[in-house]
Nucleic acid binder design. Structure first.
Lengths: 129, 129
DNA sequence: GCGTTTTTGACAATCATTCTCGTTGTCACG
DNA sequence: CGTGACAACGAGAATGATTGTCAAAAACGC
């Protein structure tokens, strides 16, 4: 039942790319970047790899209004994002208070195995004007 | 700049339906229900109406993993949802602490015009076993 | 090397949502 | 009450991201 994760050129390429780029990018976006670099990786593989990484908790997935999934390599551990509506700039924020609040509220209703998603949108200083 | 919202049979139908049903439903779902009731409303119109209501803040939109937008008429004011992964049961929860926290964090980074989305997922008592 | 098993990737399929554009219904005003 | 302007409607086509398919290629253990 354990899937012995094999090391492949494509997987390395996706990981390496994610390590370099800043901010969130869509699967299609990442795929295009790989092609520009000369890496020959299929779109299908990019999707699969990203899903795998997301399942493994190594990258974050965001679903902004607009229908595209955005992926981003980000720091370990649980955190949330503050995203600028204008330029897309992203700031990672930690919210211990929120974590415990979410857990408490869930417990009050008898919910277990709790997770949550939280995103904050706003206009950053540069885009506010 | 003001769009004089006209009162139409279709709009009433969608609103009325939302007032009756419990929980979240997709646009397609609502459209099917309207047809069963004998209301003849186009799918396009359902989408447009839902978008309008969502913009007006009269209904909530949720984007669960799965790609379908779910709409729900819910209580006035800002609140969040605690959703069961198993049966989809939804509980509305208010989190004043979270609201102020989000605002504070955003302000710290110079962000203005802030909004946020928060969803908590878990297993409800019935589904936990 | 060799065989087994996973992974890959081109292409087709899916499916919610959006667009198009001619028709219809509302509303304001005469 | 009539009428004209303009928003709303709706059927079908279009869009576009994501997922499924399956034969060929690559990786790993021996």
């Amino acid at each position: 039942m354990s899937s012995p994760v094999r090391h492949t050129r494509q997987r390395s390429a996706v990981s390496a790319l994610l390590a370099e780029v800043e901010g969130f990018h869509s699967a299609q976006d990442l795929h295009a970047m790989l092609r520009e670099r000369g890496e020959r990786v299929g779109l299908t593989t990019v999707y699969r790899t990203l899903q795998g990484l997301a399942d493994a908790g190594e990258i974050d997935v965001m679903r902004p209004p607009g229908g595209e999934h955005l992926y981003r390599r980000c720091s370990e551990g649980h955190h949330h994002h503050l995203v600028c509506r204008g330029c897309g700039r992203t700031v990672e924020v930690a919210g211990p208070a929120v974590e415990s609040w979410a857990g408490r509220v869930a417990a009050q209703h008898g919910f277990t195995d709790v997770s949550h998603t939280l995103e904050i949108f706003g206009a950053c200083p540069s885009c506010a004007g």
